[in-house]
Design a protein around this nucleic acid. Structure first.
Lengths: 228, 228
DNA sequence: GTCTATAGCCTGATAGAC
DNA sequence: GTCTATCAGGCTATAGAC
């Protein structure tokens, strides 16, 4: 590595990369520890000093990575949104388009949220009044709506749902269902994972309930059959 | 009041009543102030010292009314459950039986929960891991299920819903709907009351969605019409 | 039932040496 | 990027005088 030998004052790109990578690893570790602390003490019980203690450094060292406690909250919020979006996107991509894809995506969403409870609380329950998510941290949720809307449109096109299902309102409905299931599960069955217990196990039936509310008009069915 | 004159060492019943009443007023005041603090600092941000400050006493005085911070949480939880139940019961009593009563009760429930956000969070989101509700504090929620179940049974009997609606599962579904709407509203529209905004305004349609999932069987309808 | 005093913790954040 | 030292508070809870 010639660039390393030239100067220690102006390190070459590899060196910068390595430092940046190490720094990024520490940042991720801080966020992981912060998640553990929130699990034990509550989202609002996160403290920078406790994170430092578990990381094995003194509290002031944390400030080299985050300018404030609120910045840690925002990084947690942002990372949560990104991961959550990615998990749902992946599940949708692996399933059939239309209603099956929507169901698979929402179930993956619920599964991830239950497996990441404190982050889910930070994202959906706003338990820290003094923390307001930044615009950047919030951005992935817009893409979330787009993905769900696309599956709804496919389902309508495929004749699985009535035309009203291709709407903003239907997106609100499905997100209300998933948040409702999630909230009930987290409050009443704090130790059960997705699929166990009274609430999350009814999710498939809730999706059938949703589908029943958007019936395909008889005329449309007849027209469809006529075309074939 | 003769009993008052007899002795100051063993005060008569009126005196005891008055003291007990005064004490109860102070307890209620502490709970009201605690609710304000939770609104501003988060449910997990409630502090006994801040309550004392606003009440105009020193922190140790609070211990004459509550043995610990957790006892305050439990009293808040209990009072919330009782009020919430009473509001729903009243709304159901004033409405028609069956599906209309169920809808009225749930809407009253949602309205109360949105108007009492920190209490609702304490009751449904468990944001304080170190606090576990006592059995007594939890009791009213059993009666809640009974009331909802009764309206569902009436609705089935009246031919408004299919027979599967008279079930524990259906109770879970309606509570999931209300908690979902509530969670979405509180997270995304923290300043809007019930009926305003994207989420709570769709509640009537969500109830229609629920009804559509429990259709009355055609045979049952024919039989009904035949009887008439 | 109120207070003072205090024990024994905790916190977020900053200054400045190394 | 790490540390020590420190500021300027905060907290729950108890002891004991009045």
């Amino acid at each position: 590595m010639s660039s390393e030998e030239i100067s220690t004052q102006s390190p070459g790109p590899q060196r910068i990369d390595r430092r940046a990578r190490r720094r990024q690893e520490t940042i991720e570790e801080i966020l992981d520890i912060a998640t553990d602390v929130m699990t034990e003490e509550g989202v609002n019980g996160l403290s920078l000093a406790e994170v430092a203690r578990r990381l094995g450094v003194q509290p002031p060292s944390i400030y080299k990575y985050f300018p404030s406690l609120m910045a840690i909250y925002d990084a947690l919020f942002r990372r949560g949104q990104v991961e959550h979006l990615e998990v749902m996107r992946q599940a949708m991509a692996e399933a059939e388009p239309g209603f099956a894809g929507l169901t698979a995506g929402l179930e993956a969403s619920g599964r991830w949220l239950l497996a990441n409870r404190p982050t889910a609380q930070l994202m959906f329950w706003r338990p820290v009044p003094s923390y307001e998510p930044s615009v950047e941290a919030f951005a992935p949720s817009v893409e979330m709506v787009v993905l769900q809307r696309a599956r709804l449109a496919e389902a309508v096109f495929a004749g699985q749902l009535g035309p009203e299902a291709d709407s903003e309102e239907a997106v609100y409905f499905v997100s209300t269902l998933i948040v409702g299931v999630l909230s009930q599960a987290m409050a009443n069955e704090p130790d059960l994972e997705w699929g166990k217990g009274r609430f999350t196990s009814t999710f498939p039936k809730l999706m059938m309930l949703f589908a029943a509310a958007y019936p395909v008009p008889t005329a449309a069915l007849e027209q469809r059959n006529g075309i074939r």
